[in-house]
């Protein structure tokens, strides 16, 4: 188990290194000149040279990559040019490990940007996860148990319709009508737990959380329904019935255990994906999460932020994968780690 974890983590680190290399190469292949952006409108060739040196863009690409990786491992200081740091120590920005870079556009480290936005994305993803998982599994099981009935058809139809509605539509509808026009719910503004307590935090997250959860819930209703129905036709369910096991126990002990196992994998990966993937919901509700940060960085060619976020989000997906695999081995005795 431990050997497996070490091996998987090691492989994950290698994968991340390769990822940073690829992203760096894309960075240099892009037509955008980051120096020009930092230098500003009235940039003279001399000034540009100076900026390039200050930011470390004059070094070869491989060295810059090495600096970046080193920054993640042990941290680094900005500006990149040591002479400049010596000349003006008051301007030095320390970036502790793992340092994801320095955004010249926002004049702060990517770590600071992440520290501001990550709690928002995490909160949103957690609330959405709880909504879609409870809703999706409960309704999916209900649909499976009443297969063929009006309730089942209604649930399947409704989830199809919900699935078809784009998130921005549901989000804008909720915001414009439920919150603003009808005043049924306060306009959500992210409130950290430290400021307003769990109640306030949850209150403001419920609407965007539900909007984000909608499309997932629709998908999970249908998946859960399919998994439960498939599991019901298994031979071992017939065996359980033949033993005289009570129907309720056949359902909860035998059927569900087998049906819900595949959901673990999907939930883990979907959750990791949401860390930087709730772009539309974050934009609609003006929640400054990781997704919105990434989109904004893209709009203004804030390359250090983009690279930092890509690496961070890739790390989330890799870690989620490892967690899901380990969890699967715990749930399914047939799965051996190794």
């Amino acid at each position: 188990m431990l050997a497996y974890l070490v091996r998987r983590l090691f492989a994950g680190v290698i994968l991340l290194l390769v990822m940073t290399l690829v992203v760096f190469m894309l960075f240099f292949a892009s037509p955008v000149d980051p120096v020009q952006f930092s230098c500003g409108r009235n940039c003279s060739p001399e000034l540009k040279k100076q900026t390039e040196k200050a930011l470390g863009y004059d070094k070869p690409a491989v060295v810059q990559w090495k600096d970046f990786v080193q920054g993640i491992a042990v941290g680094r200081d900005y500006p990149d040019d040591p002479e400049l740091r010596a000349a003006a120590p008051e301007l030095v920005t320390e970036c502790n490990a793992p340092c994801f870079g320095y955004s010249t556009f926002n004049t702060k480290t990517v770590n600071e940007e992440i520290a501001e936005t990550f709690p928002i994305s995490l909160s949103l993803a957690i609330v959405a996860l709880i909504i879609w998982l409870t809703g999706g599994v409960l309704l999916g099981v209900t649909a499976a148990l009443t297969k063929g009935s009006i309730l089942d058809r209604g649930l399947v139809g409704a989830s199809l319709i919900l699935y078809a509605f784009p998130t921005f539509f549901i989000g804008l509808f909720a915001l414009k009508f439920i919150a603003i026009k009808w005043g049924l719910w306060d306009k959500p503004v992210y409130t950290p737990i430290a400021e307003g307590g769990i109640g306030e935090w949850l209150y403001h997250l419920l609407m965007p959380g539900a909007v984000l959860a909608a499309v997932f819930m629709a998908a999970y209703v249908r998946m859960t329904r399919a998994f439960v129905l498939e599991s019901m036709t298994e031979d071992y369910i017939r065996t359980a019935k033949a033993k005289g096991v009570r129907p309720r126990i056949v359902l909860f002990k035998h059927t569900m255990r087998a049906a819900l196992t595949p959901l673990v994998t999907m939930t883990g990966l979907d959750f990791a994906g949401l860390m930087g993937g709730a772009i539309i919901t974050e934009t609609v509700f003006n929640f400054n999460g990781l997704g919105k940060l990434a989109v904004d960085a893209n709009k203004v060619y804030d390359l250090p932020t983009i690279i930092g976020l890509v690496v961070l989000l890739a790390a989330f997906v890799i870690i989620a994968n490892i967690i899901v695999d380990v969890l699967y081995a715990v749930i399914d005795p047939r799965v051996r780690l190794g």
Binding site: E234, D235, Y236, R238, T239, R257, P333
Partner: peptide
């Protein structure tokens, strides 16, 4: 088929 007739998780 006793493999499929027994629950794999128990």
């Amino acid at each position: 088929d006793p493999l499929s007739a027994m629950h794999p998780y128990y």
